[in-house]
């Protein structure tokens, strides 16, 4: 027969839980690595934006409205999706883990509710817009590229879109499951 005090005593005297110097060194390494990754991420993002801007300036010289519409829809949908993803990341990072659990849980629920809106509205819209842009460009690709390269672009785009859809589906499923569990009454 174990009463609660015995359980408590056993709990507090669990072995193998002490801090070690090696453990701290490994932790410090992780902390520094995360800080470096954030810096690298910002550099990569800046370069991507510069490349996209240069590309848009470059293609704006084309006289074909169809081409500009197609490329505009594709790049535009990507930019909107990336912007929303970055905003989400900022929102997630701003959640304060040192608040009391009740407030934290409510903040986390709000975040995942916002993500639900993104997943059900923005993501499908961005995907459809991207696909429409690509379809608009197809006749131009067919007219200007070799048959082999045209087929390569066509099939690689389909494969990319399928892989992307699976990736997004998994992310949506994971986040919606988190939201569902957060909303379970305790």
């Amino acid at each position: 027969m174990n009463n609660f005090e015995e359980l408590q005593n056993k709990w507090q005297n669990q072995s193998g839980m002490s801090a070690t110097d090696n453990g701290f060194e490994a932790l410090l390494k992780s902390v520094k690595s995360i800080e470096n990754k954030q810096k690298t991420g910002n550099i990569v993002l800046t370069i991507t934006i510069l490349i996209l801007l240069s590309f848009l300036i470059y293609v704006s010289g084309y006289n074909s409205n169809t081409f500009l519409l197609g490329i505009g829809l594709m790049v535009g949908s990507l930019v909107v999706r990336i912007a929303i993803e970055l905003y989400s990341l900022k929102k997630l990072r701003s959640i304060n883990f040192s608040k009391d659990s009740n407030t934290f849980k409510s903040d986390l629920t709000n975040y995942y509710s916002f993500r639900k809106y993104t997943h059900y509205l923005i993501t499908p819209l961005a995907l459809v817009t991207y696909a429409i842009g690509f379809v608009i460009l197809l006749p131009q690709f067919k007219a200007t590229l070799s048959h082999g390269f045209y087929l390569y672009i066509l099939f690689s785009a389909i494969v990319f879109l399928l892989i992307f859809c699976v990736f997004i589906y998994k992310q949506i499923k994971n986040e919606l499951s988190k939201l569902k569990q957060l909303q379970v009454q305790d």
Partner: peptide, 24 residues
């Protein structure tokens, strides 16, 4: 208290996928 808050919230946020169906 501050560390416990961070710890409890980290566990709350990270462990949810580990929950089993019969938890309730």
């Amino acid at each position: 208290t501050w560390i416990y808050r961070i710890c409890v919230n980290t566990c709350l946020a990270e462990i949810r996928k580990q929950r089993k169906k019969d938890r309730n």
